[in-house]
Amino acid sequence: MNLTLKVWRQKDAKSPGRLAEYAATNIIPGMSFLEMLDVVNEELIARGEEPIAFDSDCREGICGTCALVINGIAHGGQRGTTVCQLHMRHFRDGQTVIIEPWRARAFPVLKDLVTDRGAFDRIVQAGGFISVNTGGTPDANSLPISKAISDQAMDAAACIGCGACVAACKNASAMLFVSAKVSHLNLLPQGQPEKDGRVSNMVRQMDAEGFGNCTVTGSCEAVCPKEISLDFIARMNRDYGAALLKNK
C-alpha cells in the first residue's frame, strides 16, 4: 500500500520546525510503523537526503523509547500498544498520516521526532526510590506482602516511562507517570518509611519541570501502552494531601 506522510522535521533544538511531506510506497501491512519509517529513511538516504530522526530501541513495547504522535494520537491509537508494536495493517491504502513528536515544554524537541525526556529521570531522582544500600538487607521472605497489594504495586510499576501520557494530555501533565512511580513504592510496606517525602519531592520536581496540571480529562489513561489506571492519580493526590497535612 502507499501512504502520504507529513512528518515534523526540525534540525535541532533551537531551529524552528515544519511538517514535510513524503511518500511511503510499497508498504506491506505486516510491517511495524517504525519499519515503515525505516523504509522511508532508506529511500531518503538513497536520494541523499537526511533520514528522519526518531527514537526506538527494543521495538517490542517494553523499553519506552519510541514516541510518536500519529494523526493526533500518541502511539497511534491501538489500545495498549506502543508505536513500535503498531502495525501497518491498521492503516488504509492512500491514507495521509501526520507524524509529530511528543509536544510538551518539559520535553523539548532535539531533532525531528526525537525529544528530551530527561525530566522523567529527574523526577525519579527527587524521590522515586527506596533508600537501601547494597547488602545488609533482610531475607526476602521475612516480609510477607499480601498478593493484592503486591499485584497493585506491579500494576503501577508496569509503566515504561514513555511519556505518552504527557503527550496526550491537553495540559501536558505528567500526573499519570508520576502517580505510577509514586504508587508503586508507596503501596509496598518497604516504601512506607519515606512515603510522605517521596510524594512531596516528586510532585515538587514535576512542577519545577514545567508540566501542566491534571484536570482529570483522562486522555493519558486511554493512550497509555501499559494501561496504567487513573486511580493511581487519585491515590497520589491522597498521599500528597496526607503528606501536606502531616508537614503542617
Binding site: I145, S146, D151, Q190
Partner: peptide
C-alpha cells in the same frame, strides 16, 4: 540468594503467593 533480598528491599514487585511469600 543475596540478589533476591536486595531486590525485594528495593521494592521490586515479584510475584507472590496468597500467603504473602514469594
Amino acid at each position: 540468594v543475596n540478589i533476591i533480598d536486595q531486590c525485594v528491599a528495593q521494592g521490586v514487585p515479584f510475584a507472590r503467593e496468597y500467603g504473602g511469600l514469594l
